[in-house]
């Protein structure tokens, strides 16, 4: 794969420190973004690319300060346009490993259009979306992932909007690697990032992130020790969907409806549980699992929902040009100037 460096071994052994730009990080104290930055820096040595071949592109928002802090090339872009800017970077430089740091407002509100089209095209971009379910930089208005009825500065009587389910949106738009992780689960986040780095095509990682100032505790039932086991189901390829303090609960499919089963009731066993297949090109089960977060009482799936491969836009595009060059030869100036639609004026 001449057009992709992801498989090329790096010559230098990096450490997390190599990926830190060393400048002052300006997020609020306690912000989940610090953890995401740390996990990205810790897993960057596994990304399979030299740091000078990595570009971090962002839009506008708290998350989008990310490129300043990474010791890689970067782009602090335009609000909502990170996916489009990253598309430009990638297509003009197919050998670069292009990452996007964005937020729920940046990517799903103003940037929704660019996001779905990047997913549709399956461009080799790695999108990390920090989801804190709020607009932090503008100081606390609701976002497209804010839960219905949420009271914020711009919705004092509760929102009447339905939120986006980012996993469903990415899957429905054609993203080929779709995952969810959490700022407060550092090991898991590192693992997901490293896996994403190796995927070719659109990679979408939703990172549930706490905003301690404007939406504190939005995900505490998922991230805190006391409640995590009952509220999170970790997705692992070829493994059954089991969760609970003693791994005593499972998810079974009843037709197309997921139901929670008690594995200790004597009637059900782990063999009844839905087995996760992240490589399935049929997204039906992915949607089923993504919907858990919309059903009260169901655990939030965390992990890789989807990881399958299909041709990438950038790969096909480069291939098309190479093919044309082989078929038609490398063009010359004269051949271009005196080709079709030119004539001599007499």
């Amino acid at each position: 794969m001449a057009n992709n460096i992801n498989t090329v071994e790096t010559e230098v052994k990096y450490t997390a420190k190599d990926f830190s730009s060393g400048i002052d990080v300006k997020w609020c104290p306690g912000c989940g973004d610090y953890s995401i930055l740390a996990q990205v820096q810790r897993s960057s040595p596994d990304f399979g690319a030299k740091k000078e071949d990595i570009v971090w592109v962002s839009g506008i928002g708290c998350s989008s300060r990310f490129p300043y802090y990474m010791n890689t090339y970067g782009f602090h872009g335009i609000h909502g346009r990170a996916a489009a800017i990253a598309t430009g970077v990638k297509l003009a430089n197919p050998k670069l490993q292009v990452w996007v740091a964005t937020g729920d407002g940046d990517m799903l509100s103003i940037g929704g259009n660019h996001f779905i089209h990047a997913c549709r095209k399956n461009i080799d971009l790695k999108i990390v979306m920090f989801n804190n379910r709020i607009y932090g930089l503008t100081k606390g208005q609701y976002s497209p992932t804010s839960e219905k009825g949420k009271v914020t500065k711009s919705s004092p009587y509760g929102t009447v909007d339905w939120p986006f389910n980012a996993i469903k949106l990415a899957t429905g738009s054609g993203a080929t690697f779709v995952a969810r992780s959490m700022d407060r689960d550092p090991k898991h986040l590192q693992e997901i990032l490293s896996r994403a780095a190796k995927h070719k095509g659109v990679t979408f990682i939703e990172v549930l992130q706490n905003c301690p100032i404007f939406n504190d505790g939005a995900f505490f039932n998922l991230t805190e020790k006391e409640t995590r086991a009952d509220n999170v189901v970790y997705l692992e390829h070829a493994k059954p969907l089991v969760f609970g303090e003693k791994q005593n609960k499972g998810i079974k499919l009843d037709g197309l409806n997921p139901i929670i089963i008690d594995l200790e009731d004597g009637k059900h066993s782990v063999n009844d549980c839905l087995v996760h297949d992240e490589t399935d090109d049929n997204p039906t089960r992915i949607f089923l699992m993504a919907r858990f977060t919309d059903i009260p009482g169901y655990p939030t799936p965390v992990g890789v929902f989807r990881n399958y491969s299909k041709q990438t836009y950038d790969g096909d595009y480069v291939q098309q040009i190479e093919g044309l060059k082989q078929k038609m030869g490398v063009g010359t100036y004269d051949a271009l100037m005196f080709s079709e639609n030119t004539w001599e004026v007499k």
Binding site: I110, Y135, L137, T138, K139, Q141, K153, S154, S155, P156
Partner: peptide
């Protein structure tokens, strides 16, 4: 749509 330094207009009206 929120943007500094005018988000108070949206917020005030919302209230």
């Amino acid at each position: 749509y929120p943007i500094t330094p005018q988000s108070e207009i949206l917020e005030y009206l919302s209230n």
